Computed example of a mutant assay.
Amino acid sequence: MSPTSIRTRFLILSDTHGAELPDACFEHSADVVIHCGDLTNSSYITEFQATIKQLQRLKAPIKLVIAGNHDFTLDTPTFEQKIREAGLENDSSVKKVYGDYEEVRTLFENEQDNGIIFLDEGTHLSTLPNGALLNIYASPYTPSLGDWGFQYHPERGHDFQIEEDVDIVITHGPPRGIMDYTDNRRAGCPDLFKAIARSRPQMHCFGHIHEGWGAMIAQWRDRTLIGNEPSHFTAIDYGQSSVVTKLSRLDPETSPAVVETSHCTDDAIPLKTDHQTLFINAAFEASNTAGDGLEMHPVWQVDLELPCAKIVRSAAH
């Protein structure tokens, strides 16, 4: 392992929808927990409280959280519109169930001392307790014509402003063509794929499409060959890419609570920075339509190398 890098362990999950995690999840220690959204099923404040208690129990000093479409009370304009359209502005029972505007955000702000950090869309740079520098881009937005939170019209698209020096991308939904197949169609976002193909982070983790649970290491083609409108057909060399695992490989009788994978320099399959990206679909809740016999999907434990913060800052000066 390079002296300029630090092995960093991530525990990654998504789409818990307020459910309890298996006890085995709390036996694993990590440097960072990542939750890719859909913390709740109906955005009830009690569901947020239950999820926060689960996050508190996970063994990691830092727990990064984004919203999903089900967490619409965190999308204040959408929440206000829902209340207004239903004519419930003065209904006190609504506040008992969902909380007041911004109340859920306050819940997360009060958890920062416990290491739970809610991320809005954008780039977030921090030094981890293990000394690594973590550069993250986060976005809760997904394409839809529905009536949920953090969504945009598919035909209008969305501007994912991912810089090329970002290490990890956390989104709620998948990019088009990557573990996004549901209802006989691709549900991922082409704009997100283009942004990922241009920035080529070490890891992109997401959920949203429960049937897509799994992980793959994508080998990028040469930038000069994919043009200005990259797609999963043109930008990825599937002959050189590899599947870590996927739902069809899980046995309902023996499926573990946590699946472990490691891609550091000294590992059997090291990740080649700027040439490969590890894609993780971490949807925890099983899909009713998959027919795989699973009630829940494993949480992901991933080891990657991040740059040492001291060395990066010394080089900057």
Rank of each mutant, 00 (worst) to 15 (best):
K96I: 10
K96A: 11
K96Y: 11
Y98G: 02
Y98E: 04
G99V: 00
G99Y: 06
D100E: 11
Y101T: 06
E103M: 08
V104H: 12
R105H: 12
R105W: 04
L107F: 15
L107H: 12
F108A: 10
F108L: 06
N110I: 00
E111G: 07
D113I: 13
D113T: 13
D113A: 14
N114A: 14
N114H: 14
G115V: 10
G115F: 08
I117K: 10
F118T: 10
L119S: 11
D120Q: 13
E121R: 12
G122K: 08
T123P: 09
L125P: 05
L125E: 15
S126F: 03
S126K: 13
T127M: 06
L128F: 03
L128P: 05
N130Y: 02
G131F: 10
G131M: 10
A132P: 03
A132N: 06
L133V: 07
L133D: 09
L134M: 14
L134Q: 09
N135G: 00
N135C: 04
Y137I: 03
A138V: 07
S139Y: 06
T142Y: 00
T142Q: 07
P143V: 00
L145S: 12
G146W: 09
W148S: 14
G149Q: 08
Y152A: 04
H153N: 15
E155P: 01
E155H: 12
R156A: 11
H158R: 13
H158W: 10
F160Y: 15
F160K: 04
F160C: 05
Q161V: 14
Q161T: 14
Q161D: 13
Q161M: 10
I162Q: 09
I162T: 07
E164K: 15
E164M: 03
E164D: 15
D165S: 10
D165I: 06
D165W: 12
V166C: 07
V166P: 06
D167A: 09
D167G: 03
V169S: 03
G173L: 02
G173S: 06
P174D: 03
G177Y: 09
I178A: 01
D180R: 02
D180Y: 02
D180W: 01
Y181A: 12
T182Y: 15
T182K: 15
D183W: 14
D183G: 13
D183A: 13
N184S: 12
N184I: 01
N184R: 10
N184F: 10
R185M: 07
R185F: 00
R186H: 15
R186V: 01
A187W: 12
A187E: 14
A187T: 15
A187P: 00
G188M: 08
P190Y: 10
P190V: 01
P190H: 08
D191N: 12
D191M: 07
D191A: 03
L192R: 06
K194I: 05
K194W: 00
A195K: 09
I196M: 04
I196S: 02
I196D: 01
I196Q: 02
R200T: 09
R200V: 11
Q202W: 02
M203F: 06
M203D: 01
H208M: 03
H210R: 13
H210E: 08
E211C: 03
W213A: 05
W213T: 00
W213L: 06
A215Q: 10
M216I: 13
I217F: 02
A218D: 02
A218Q: 04
A218G: 07
Q219W: 00
W220Q: 04
W220S: 08
R221W: 00
D222N: 14
D222G: 07
R223Q: 13
R223W: 03
T224M: 11
T224Q: 13
T224S: 15
L225Y: 01
